[in-house]
Design a binder for these strands. Structure first.
Lengths: 215, 215
DNA sequence: TAGATTGTTAATCGATTAACAATC
DNA sequence: TAGATTGTTAATCGATTAACAATC
């Protein structure tokens, strides 16, 4: 693997390649050319070859790519073979949805703890994990390896909890609050801004509507 | 408003501007320059001015932008003043999380129906809305205005339900399944691929780890 | 060998940033 | 008026696409 910086645009496409390759595997396709894959995915063959060559030459001239090995290679690049240990902070609807989302485990993410501050929820069991009092977070983190905190707490407390996560040395933060976290720690934050996404959908609907009205 | 095509990169930044302006309003700041805002948001002042000027000249030389009116302008552009009527299909954990997510209503999205196929869930009430049998979807759509369907059903049935949504003439689809929908109808699809987002976080963590190991 | 398709360089396109005249 | 800051044009940067020699 060469050391030149891989752009975030490329990284974000990797999970999509991975999904398509998985589909191909499942329908029993053994090899695929960048041309064929480009048609399926609706992107250019050039882009596929450029993207893959950021990480190495996985193909073979005159043949194309072996689906299974390319699938594995991309999995390796994304770290799917590694296990990331994650905790969920905030066991409301969203936190529970994440806890029950089976696909994460398949991709190497293992939920090992769930925390909340609501006495009605503390002590409940979700997916065989007892919901702990958020007060026990410090203790838990000292006794367990925690790579990622998934933050599903109300807007008002997000900033302070994110800060705590940073202070405890957790390196990855998956944030579901509609807010840009600024914490003075060395934490990698990935945001899921649901309402932003919904607003983009609203914009596109409006635009479409206006366009149609004009015609 | 001029008619030249606005790039999707700009559109995606609008909700973020909207959030920051809302924060400014709440702390009582009345006017702001692109320079000041750029520092807060961590982007360039140039970009802010370019973005806003896609939609019109909202500022004033020597003064900057009036926070409240800019907030409202961006809200209008995004269609926040309009009401979008939405239904949730799939009342599992994720569907329930969406139903209970208060921020949507604030942004003009109103949930008017929830559907599921599980007899244990049908008939339950979520946020004052009775969960209906998915079989009643056709009937519901003929009797109500439905702009958006929020799809939170299991992977296996996503494609067929998305197809049905298209057939019923619903124009917007918010998809939570890890799959790229291809439906032969004129539907605007916005995807929330949670596992893709998580995989990107995993990649970044790995990369950081490898970088640190090297030093 | 001939055909196919990659890996990679070069060209193009679009998005971001810089610069500055216009103007409040 | 002088200072500040926009709106907008020009320059730069980066990402995508095209082209083609290398090679299986």
């Amino acid at each position: 693997m060469n050391s030149k910086k891989i752009s975030i645009a490329v990284i974000k496409r990797l999970p999509r390649y991975h999904r398509y390759l998985n589909d191909l595997l499942e329908i029993g396709i053994k090899r695929i050319s960048s041309k064929e894959l480009s048609i399926r995915m609706g992107i250019t063959a050039s882009q596929i070859r450029q993207d893959l060559n950021c990480f190495g030459g996985f193909g073979q001239q005159g043949y194309g790519y072996n689906v299974e090995s390319l699938y594995n290679e991309i999995g390796n690049i994304m770290g799917i073979n590694k296990t990331f240990y994650a905790i969920i902070i905030g066991a409301g609807n969203m936190g529970q949805a994440l806890a029950n989302y089976v696909n994460f485990e398949k991709r190497g993410f293992k939920i090992i703890g769930i925390f909340d501050s609501n006495p009605d929820i503390i002590g409940k069991t979700i997916k065989n994990i007892e919901v702990l009092d958020i007060e026990k977070l410090d203790e838990f983190v000292s006794n367990n390896t925690v790579d990622i905190a998934m933050l599903c707490v109300p807007y008002e407390v997000t900033a302070s909890i994110a800060d705590k996560v940073g202070r405890l040395g957790i390196k990855g933060l998956w944030n579901f609050s509609p807010m840009d976290l600024k914490i003075p720690y060395d934490v990698i934050v990935e945001n899921v801004h649901l309402s932003d996404s919904l607003m983009v959908l609203g914009y596109k609907l409006n635009e479409k509507f206006n366009r149609e009205k004009k015609n």
